[in-house]
């Protein structure tokens, strides 16, 4: 991902990047189907994380119902393929349009709210979508949609774990490049300005609601695409995959990785998926260890595993005073300033 920057990388940064690239290429060649499946799941969460990163990381809007867009994408592809025998590739634009529309529907009335109220409204939206998918007959009710065909390229059926991995990798790379360019575009700078100081941004001629809505819609489309891929990967989807927990998991990916940072999202997705799998050896203590692990990771790296550079530069000025205040709180004693 860092290879996209124009400046040559210092050696200590090149090593981990090269390791990740080697791992990503080596996994489907040398890995077992299980490891490849876990890798594919990481790719799904990279797509989801990158999408939510636009909403939370770039535009600074807390979204607790992001799984709704993931669900809408998955159901659109699943239903079109199973009921109407539409080819996978043609369901993608449909999923994109539907998720964008739902992003507008939920975003328009709510984006003027304070971020915490926005959080609960998005949470509500997420629950409404999940419950509706469970209650409606055309979505298959609690059983969901099953028997979804595999994606095909010409005569090639993408069925094996390797094929699914490469398909997921292609999707993830498209989303990654898109995200990267967005961050560096005029749009990206507008989001940054709004996130850091909405009033100042508005004074500078940036209309916050428009840009927020755009972030919301783009984030929704990313999730929709991830959902389409998820549907053909799993071949059976049901509402239990799109719960509040799912939204929280995606949020964990980006906060753990480092808000607003693309390598951070990749790292965060890897940790969120691989950590519980690696802890399978601990059997009954697995989820407890995961919970403790989350606290410890946050205490050790409150800014995330790989925080964004842009955000840091801006924050550096603020950081000094905040750090002083934090130190005082931690010390528990008020000191005169």
């Amino acid at each position: 991902m860092k290879a996209l920057t124009t400046q040559p990388l210092p050696f200590h940064r090149l090593v981990p990047v090269a390791a990740v690239v080697l791992l990503a290429i080596g996994l489907p060649i040398f890995g077992t189907p299980y490891l490849i499946d876990v890798g594919t799941l990481v790719l799904v969460y990279i797509m989801l994380g990158l999408g939510l990163n636009i909403v939370v990381g770039y535009a600074g809007l807390l979204d607790l119902g992001y799984a709704a867009f993931f669900a809408i994408g998955a159901y659109t592809t699943g239903l079109l393929m199973v009921r109407y025998h539409v080819a996978f590739w043609l369901t993608l634009p449909a999923a994109g349009i539907l998720t964008a529309l739902s992003g507008i529907v939920i975003g328009t009335p709510t984006l003027r709210m304070r971020s915490d109220y926005l959080a609960i409204v998005t949470l509500g939206f997420g629950e409404i979508v999940r419950i509706a998918a469970t209650n409606f007959t055309f979505t298959g009710g609690p059983e969901g949609v099953y028997g979804i065909p595999h994606a095909t390229i010409g005569r090639l059926v993408l069925r094996s774990p390797q094929a699914l991995y490469w398909l997921g990798m292609a999707f993830a790379l498209v989303v990654l490049v898109g995200s990267y360019n967005l961050a560096r575009s005029r749009l990206g700078r507008a989001w940054l300005a709004i996130r850091e100081d909405e009033a100042a941004a508005q004074a500078a001629g940036i209309y916050p609601v428009y840009y927020k809505l755009l972030a919301y819609v783009l984030g929704a489309v990313f999730a929709g695409v991830a959902g389409s891929f998820f549907a053909v990967k799993l071949t059976a989807i049901n509402p239990s995959s799109f719960t509040f927990i799912q939204s929280v998991t995606i949020l964990m990916v980006i906060i753990l990785g480092g808000m607003g940072s693309l390598p951070g999202v990749i790292l965060g997705a890897a940790v969120i998926i691989i950590l519980p799998e690696a802890l399978r050896a601990f059997d009954r203590v697995r989820m407890l260890a995961f919970g403790v692990g989350l606290i410890v990771l946050m205490l050790l790296r409150p800014q995330g595993l790989w925080p964004s550079r842009i955000g840091q530069i801006v924050k550096r000025a603020v950081a000094l005073s905040e750090a002083r205040a934090a130190a005082e709180i931690a010390a528990g004693a008020p000191t005169p300033e």
Partner: peptide, 12 residues
């Protein structure tokens, strides 16, 4: 003072 990280800590 880490508004979002504390959220993850809460989930943990």
């Amino acid at each position: 003072h880490a508004r979002l990280s504390i959220l993850i800590s809460a989930i943990g």
